[in-house]
Nucleic acid binder design. Sequence first.
DNA 1: CCGCAGAGTTAAGCCTGCTTAACTCAAAAT
DNA 2: ATTTTGAGTTAAGCAGGCTTAACTCTGCGG
Lengths: 191, 191
Amino acid sequence: METWKRFHEKELTHSMAHYLQAVASLTRERGDATVSDIADRLGVSKAGVTSMIRSLRTRGLVRHERYGGVELTEEGRRLATRTEASRDVLTQFFTDILGLPPDAAAEDACMIEHLVSPASMTQFLRLTAMLRSAHPAAERFREAFREYQRQCAGGVAGAECPVCKGRCLKEAFAELEDVAGGSAAAPGARS
Amino acid sequence: METWKRFHEKELTHSMAHYLQAVASLTRERGDATVSDIADRLGVSKAGVTSMIRSLRTRGLVRHERYGGVELTEEGRRLATRTEASRDVLTQFFTDILGLPPDAAAEDACMIEHLVSPASMTQFLRLTAMLRSAHPAAERFREAFREYQRQCAGGVAGAECPVCKGRCLKEAFAELEDVAGGSAAAPGARS
DNA sequence: CCGCAGAGTTAAGCCTGCTTAACTCAAAAT
DNA sequence: ATTTTGAGTTAAGCAGGCTTAACTCTGCGG
């Protein structure tokens, strides 16, 4: 009943994950990462970078000495790589499988990339790879899913949404400008 | 290049989402939500609840007067319902589609429930419903996906992972105690 | 060899979300 | 009617991440 508190005990916060990614990509691109480069890339002040670097250093994720450059430790690189991989997989999942526009996909991936467990990510990767593949079952499914979505979005009247069958949650996610009508019934359940 | 900063501009923080859910479920179960109930349910101090309530009130998500009960506004209820629906859909996706154990699924869903956009959630819902359905294409796919995972986990030697084909990211998510060998090749890409 | 620009740092402050400690209040028990 | 109790509140403090302002280095031009 207190799972939710572990949010703040994740090994990386959202900010940390992005600092690590910035250091990783700057190192790749320029050979090293300076405080100014990081500040520019992330759109924060240099002072902010300095203090975050200190925090990452005490966690053993970067090496840094006064007025010097910043580089990832082994552990830091591991986490940066993992986060980048997560982002890539999730972005692909959101665009190619869920069919979101690229910018929406990128945004969602960015929000959750550091929060999804490695076990889930492995499965996300597999599912995405499989669903994108030329495997006949995958092609067949993609076709069927397209049809399914047409039905769902197509304004099915009353409580007879063929997708969710009486437990349709779609309207819970409906913003005002949503696609069309369709479905009814109330949510429910708890955890 | 600053998408990541919008993390803190989401309409709900992780904490807020859970306070709203607590109020919603207590109201369902007991008829009303007191500060103590909320504190107990969330495992925080009553003082913490008071201050969060104040913050939610100024955002127009709850009604509350000194020494009184707490209730959701229309907007608060909308957000609570949406978050609960997201959690339910994601949990189902993680267990039934990705095949995670229930507690891992619940944990991951809890972490991201408030961060995934409504548009994505609608698609998550459709995909999950479709993949769980008796539709022949779905049944066929589930079978094929099980086989696929066996291959992936089954220790395919060298760079010839048939799943990811030269861009296998699986090892990026490998914790030390990971299932088995399999795949090679390096990650890459950036956003 | 010196000085000056700019990279980097510290200091102080703000906001969020939590804590504990100490207070106030409402209402039940006597 | 008064006391007691426990629910609710405020106050003060801490940690994370940011800001601006003001400082200190480093190192290049002259």
